[in-house]
Amino acid sequence: MTVYYTSEHEWLRVEGDTAVVGITQHAADELGELVFVEVRPADTALKAGESAAVVESVKAASDIYAPVDGVVLEGNPVLADDPARVSADPEGEGWIFTFRVTDASQLSSLMDAAAYKALLG
C-alpha cells in the first residue's frame, strides 16, 4: 500500500489497482465543516483532473478531481448522512470515494508525504 498526494490537496491510498481517495487535513481545514458530498456515479470513467466529486461547505462548492485516469467505484456511503465526517477525519473515516486506477504509470507524477509536506511549507 502506498499513499500519494496531489497539489490539489487530495490523498490516494493505492493497493493493487484500487485507490481510496480523500482530501488532506489541510484541505479540510481550509474548507470548513462540509454540509454535502456528491460523488460521480459508479463506473464513471475519468481522465486525471476531471471532477470526480463535489464537496460543499456552507460557503462554497469545491470539486474533487480524479488524481489519475481511472473509474469511480463508489462514494463513501457514510457521507450521505454525515458529510461532516470528512471535516472530522479527512484522512481516515472521511474518505470520499474509491477508484480503479487504469494507468498506474501516472502515479509516479504524484507526491509522497514528504514532498506534500514541503509543498505546504
Binding site: E33, V35, S57
Partner: peptide, 12 residues
C-alpha cells in the same frame, strides 16, 4: 475576515 477559527457553521 471570512471566518475565525470556530468556522462558519459555529459562528452562524
Amino acid at each position: 475576515p471570512v471566518q475565525y477559527p470556530d468556522g462558519i457553521m459555529a459562528e452562524h
